[in-house]
Amino acid sequence: MRMRSKIQAAFDQIRAEDALKERTKAFVHVKTQGRRQDRARRRAFALAMACLTVLLLGGGGYLSYAMPVAAIGVDVNPSIELAVNIFDRVVGVTGYNEDGVRLAEELGVQNMRYLDAIEVVLSSQPVASCLQRGMTLELTVACASQEKAQAMQSLIADNTGIPSQQIYCCNQEEAQQAHEAGLSLGKYRVLLQLQEVDPDVDVQAVQGLTMRELREMLEEAGGSETPSAQQNQEHCQQEDQQGQAQHNGLGQGQGQGKGQGQGKGGKGA
């Protein structure tokens, strides 16, 4: 018999006992069970943390997307306001009179870039027909950051061709007061101008009026009319840099001289 055959025959007799195999299986099972549970727990924890992170990021992203940081008031006869988020997208449309509410429902500018949304508003039938009839269009940009408000004002003017003197800036406090009074940004601003010359004028007196009627009312009362673009710009800068009391005094002085000259020209056109 050859050596290989002898060795193979000899080693073939050596086998692991079934009891040894079973004890080994039981031992490995016991030793790995804890680790398997730990691993399952770690996986579950990691999964939970991943879900939480996704929720937080998603929730945070949604909140930052849905949160308006600026508003653009469009006043002609329909008075509407576009709420704009940090990504320059429209996240809300509010109507401030009957026509405005109807227009807000029809527009479909949600999530649109605000410049595109303004184009849609201006080309909508109710606004376009008002403009054709020579009604006064005013846009008002409200933003906590006056720098951002100025940038938006400039972009809107460049993009739409609307003269800068018809695009106003206001601060967040004024915007809030306008909302509390239930007026659009543009109408509230004219109301403030009216109240300077006639303190008896209140919100109810101006609520149903169009911008044109308001302007005429202001003119009759002897108040300032549409300020110039430069004045608008100064208005924004002053609100950003100076205190409110100082700003009011300076704004009035400039508004009287420049505003009247241009306002008459505008009316005649």
């Binding site: 050596i14 086998r15 692991a16 040894l20 004890r23 080994t24 299986k25 031992f27 490995v28 030793k31």
Partner: peptide
């Protein structure tokens, strides 16, 4: 592989308990 492990253990070890230890360590 139990038979293979068992044969290698037989080459080197002289006790059943050592063989069982090796079985446990190898398969763990």
């Amino acid at each position: 592989y139990a038979d293979t492990v068992r044969r290698i253990c037989m080459l080197h070890l002289k006790s059943a308990s050592d063989t069982e230890d090796i079985f446990q360590e190898v398969f763990l």
